[in-house]
Design a binder for these strands. Structure first.
Length: 587
RNA sequence: GGGGGCGUAGCUCAGAGGAUAGAGCAGCGGUUUUCUAAACCGUUGGUCGGGGGUUCGAGUCCCUCCGCCCCUGCCA
């Protein structure tokens, strides 16, 4: 019999089938299968209670009928899972040791995990739109959440079978270029002259230009003319604009490389600049958009708020804005990329924008007979400074991402040197890089994305508790066991006896729970649920490690414990990979 | 004014309408002739912001009040 990757899904399916023939339950019965308190079992079905209420019957009697039908169906072999009715009408399920063993024997490497999980979104094309920095500016701490969460979501969706297209929708066509080009020309700055840190220079130049245009109306007018020249294709300005973008991209790539982030496409706003006119035309022809106060806007009369709060898709001066390019971008992704689903990873302040965008796109696509992809705004909370106020990009002193990553690595290096002085410097540097950057990343991912995030060096770089180093350390210990026995991870597992001790069984149960954790993580695209699971797994492993010696004399006991070590390692590494964190063999 | 988010242990945070609200940190007390002590074990700590309601059952849903953050026509 096929060993279910996700036992929760198997129990759910068996209960639905069993319920179909029972009066009062039927085809629409939702058993509400959830992971449960280990005191009660591995999973519990809560669905009987509300149903019994709605049909005015005794919940325990109804549960009894369901349980009898379940037994008769033989969908869940008794050797694998037991169940009982408990309390007012819960049904508790407990996985049996033979199932735990069968599961661990089946899902015995990363490829098997991938195959087990890979049916969820098979055949779907999903565009993940994330990171999205602006050119001519350095990436700062405000970009980290979108970058790190987006990368993790892309990996999670791909792991579950989707064809993922990662698209970096960079801001490379804003009005800031008028001022910047003006300042570059006045300073006689040559962006192609091989400067050490051109982005630093652009930021200084922009500041100068900005100050100048504020005090001198003529300069402001000149900046506008430079912008118009750029938009009209003036060769000199276009060349400058390209140079700025090239230098910016190089700086972005350096950050992305350190973070292990990759994109399939980098189609910035400029890519869509010739695609907005047809959007205006279609939205006007279909009556979705109309003129208001000189701008082209969309109202949604059926919506409480957006009936009066406009979605401005073309400014009164005729220029496009991010609503214009976002609309063109959806069309491109739907028609050219054949996207079934588009996931936008941005901060929560843009919720109104995306709600309006999605409403507009739905109407527009319906009116023009297009299929509308599933559109999701995956938002996250604001990054706050130590003072509890938002870190601003345009004022104050934003923490640059490269500086943050440098400091993370430095602090990690000091710590590694203290804890593992026997390792040579190159290895300590390499460990520090993985652990330091992993810590920064994990600190962000392990927290519910919709919460605000208080930026704090101490918090980001603390290596205590639910952190990346704790997970990495568990993996390093497993490697250490295999090293000590002169085996590679995965070797020495032959002749294993059945799992026996409490610590062994608890660890095995936790390992089987990976699929449920994945399911929960994907449901609302919340990576912190995967983090919580991995932390529990590492913690369960540590308990096992302290309770049971692995390298014992008895070959059958040693083999089964090595098997648990190996499965823990692949699960841990698979999970870390999904978060974008590299595993370590030694630390 | 309208809308969104948040408020849970001293601190940082988890909690899928379900059973006795959980972790980490900090605190207190233990564990190493042993596969990595960046660890493990035990323990202290709660009016889930206040009040009302719906429900067999509410930290979770509804109403209301208080406090903080954010958005709310030409930035993204």
């Amino acid at each position: 019999m096929h060993v279910w990757y996700n036992p929760s899904a198997a129990i759910d399916a068996a209960l639905r089938t069993a319920a179909a023939g029972i009066e009062g339950l039927g085809n629409d019965f939702d058993p509400q299968v959830r992971p449960s308190d280990p005191n009660f079992g591995d999973f519990q079905a809560n669905g009987i209670l509300p149903r019994a209420k709605s049909i005015r019957t005794n919940p325990r009697a109804l549960a009894q009928q369901l349980v009898e039908a379940l037994s008769a169906s033989a969908a869940l072999p008794a050797a694998w899972v037991n169940w009982e009715i408990a309390g007012p009408g819960f049904i508790n399920f407990r996985l049996q040791a033979p199932f735990l063993s069968a599961w661990l024997n089946t899902y015995d490497d990363a490829a098997q995990h991938r195959e087990g999980a890979g049916t969820l979104y098979a055949g779907q094309i999903v565009v993940v739109d994330f990171s999205s920095p602006n050119t001519a500016k350095q990436m700062h701490v405000g970009h980290i959440r979108s970058s790190v969460i987006g990368e993790s979501l892309a990996r999670l969706l791909a792991f579950c079978g989707a064809t993922v297209i990662r698209d970096n929708h960079i801001g490379d066509w804003g009005t800031q270029f008028g001022i910047l080009i003006l300042a570059i020309k006045r300073a006689g700055y040559d962006p192609n002259a091989g400067h050490a840190d051109p982005l630093e220079d652009f930021e200084h130049l922009y500041k100068e230009g900005s100050a100048l245009t504020k005090e001198d109306p003529e300069a402001l007018e000149e900046a506008r003319r430079e912008l118009v020249k750029l938009q009209n294709g003036d060769p000199e300005n276009v060349a400058l604009w390209r140079a700025i973008n090239t230098a910016s991209q190089a700086a972005f790539d350096a950050i992305y490389q350190r973070l292990g982030i990759q994109f399939d496409l980098t189609l910035g706003e400029s890519f869509y600049r010739d695609q907005v006119a047809p959007v205006y035309a279609e939205l006007e022809q279909t009556g979705i958009a109309r003129e208001s106060e000189g701008a082209l806007v969309v109202f949604h009369p059926e919506h409480e708020r957006f009936a009066t709060q406009p979605f401005i898709i073309r400014k009164s001066d005729g220029a496009s804005n991010y609503a214009s390019t976002d609309l063109a971008t959806v069309r491109y992704r739907a028609e050219e990329l054949k996207a079934d689903r588009i996931v936008y990873v941005t901060d929560g302040r843009q919720q109104d924008h995306f709600q309006q965008l999605f409403l507009t796109v739905e109407k527009w696509f319906a009116a023009t007979m297009r299929n509308c992809p599933k559109l999701q705004h995956i938002w996250f909370g604001t990054i706050l400074g130590e003072d509890g106020k938002a870190i601003k990009t345009r004022s104050g002193a934003p923490v640059r991402l490269k500086v943050l990553l440098n400091e993370a690595e430095e602090r990690a290096y000091a710590l590694v040197s203290e804890k593992a002085p026997q390792l040579d410097e190159a290895e300590r540097r390499s460990i520090a890089s993985v652990a330091g950057i992993g810590a920064v990343r994990y600190a962000d991912l392990s927290q519910n994305r919709t919460s605000d995030y208080t930026f704090s060096w101490d918090k980001l770089l603390s290596f205590d508790g639910n952190t990346a180093p704790y997970l990495l350390y568990a993996g390093a210990r497993i490697h250490s066991i295999f090293r000590k026995l002169e085996l590679s991870p995965g070797q020495g597992l032959e002749g294993a006896s059945a799992l026996e001790t409490e610590a062994e069984l608890l660890l095995a149960r936790k390992l089987v729970g990976f699929a449920s954790a994945l399911e929960q993580t994907l449901a609302d695209l919340r990576p912190h649920l995967l983090c919580a699971y991995l932390y529990e797994l590492a913690s369960e492993f540590s308990t096992f490690y302290n309770a049971e010696k692995v390298a014992v004399e008895d070959p059958s006991i040693r083999a089964r414990r090595l098997m648990l070590c190996h499965r823990t390692l692949i699960t841990l590494n698979t999970g870390l990979e999904l978060l974008g964190i590299q595993p370590l063999e030694r630390m």
